[in-house]
Amino acid sequence: MDQITSSQDYDTDGATAYGGDSTATNDLNNLDFLVGLSICQDYDYSSEIPDECLALIFQLLSSGDRKRCSLVCRRWLTVEGQSRHRLALNAAAEVSAHLPSIFTRFESITKLTIRCDRKSVSINDDALTLISLRCRNLTRFKIRGCSEISERGMNSLANNCESLRKFSCGSCSFGAEGMNALLNNCSSLEELSVKRLRGMKDSFAAEPIGLGTAASSLKSIVLEELYNGQCFGPLNYWVEKFENFEDTSVFWGLG
């Protein structure tokens, strides 16, 4: 739109915007109205908000509202992704090809949940390794129904995400080696929850599970519906020895 600089540039041919008398005063009033309307329609006032402030606004919104805001423009999409710290991810095998682009957008994730439906094939060790490399600042990780993840994937997670403070798994297929890797590498681990861990079917072959370097930081252990849960027996000794455990948080549901 061309810039209007004076009333002489504005010609209504004898009529005003509201059908009244064509006077110099009305012309100028109409000019101010039209120019103001043009500014309101064309100017993006949100561009004056710094990225840091925009990120704080997004953090006050619900997950659904954040998703809708990310569709407004490229800048909002970028800021919303960079300021998101919590993510829940469908862990079906088909998602593996999209993981690089997902974690390029969401590069600041510290709390991650991956979940796979029982009827689907889950992501594998390579996918978990990629996630652990892209999310080295994870403090909370929850994994459900990922039957294709083995000791190798858990070793990668333990080595790359040493800042983990909370770990929860359910209906997974790795075993004692994977658990020990986690407990030996994540020295800041405070909460451990294990349910239906299916990788320890042979109690004679499975190695015992101890607290490792996490012994001084763990405060809560929840074990439920385990196969050969006696592999976790050494934890009982540590729970009784260290005073940092909260009595009400330790639940032994060994199967």
Rank of each mutant, 00 (worst) to 15 (best):
C73H: 09
S101N: 12
S96M: 14
V121N: 00
K142T: 15
M154Q: 08
H85W: 10
R118Q: 07
F141G: 06
L54F: 03
K142M: 05
A24R: 06
Q59F: 07
S108F: 13
E151C: 07
Y45W: 09
G36M: 11
S70I: 09
L99E: 13
C73G: 03
E94C: 09
L130D: 03
C69E: 06
K119Q: 11
A97C: 12
N155I: 13
D44P: 00
D126Y: 05
Q82Y: 09
N159F: 10
D125G: 03
S120F: 08
R86K: 14
K142R: 12
F106Q: 04
H98T: 15
I39F: 02
L138P: 00
M154L: 12
I114A: 05
N29Y: 05
R152A: 11
A88W: 15
G36W: 08
A88E: 15
N159P: 01
Q41T: 14
I39W: 01
R66A: 09
T110E: 01
I57Y: 03
A55F: 04
A158Y: 04
R75T: 06
L54T: 14
E80T: 15
S132M: 05
I114K: 03
N155H: 10
H85L: 10
N90V: 15
N30K: 04
R144M: 07
D126F: 05
C146R: 08
E48R: 03
P50K: 05
P50E: 03
L133D: 01
Q59A: 10
L133R: 08
Q59I: 12
K119W: 10
G81K: 04
S62R: 09
L77T: 15
S46E: 00
W76R: 04
L34I: 14
C40G: 08
D126G: 03
N29W: 04
S132L: 06
R144L: 09
N29V: 12
C69D: 03
R66W: 09
R86H: 14
D27C: 04
I102W: 04
A127H: 04
G64T: 15
L130C: 02
I57W: 01
S108W: 11
N160M: 08
H85T: 15
I143Y: 01
R144Q: 10
I39Q: 02
T129K: 01
A158I: 14
V95P: 00
L31D: 11
C73P: 05
I102H: 05
S63C: 07
D27L: 09
N159I: 14
Q59P: 02
S122N: 05
H98Q: 14
I131M: 00
S47K: 05
Y43S: 05
V72H: 00
I149R: 01
R115G: 02
L87G: 11
A91C: 13
E107I: 14
I123N: 00
F141E: 04
S38I: 13
C73V: 13
A91L: 13
V72A: 03
W76I: 11
P100E: 13
L130S: 01
A127D: 08
S96C: 06
G145K: 10
L133K: 05
N29P: 02
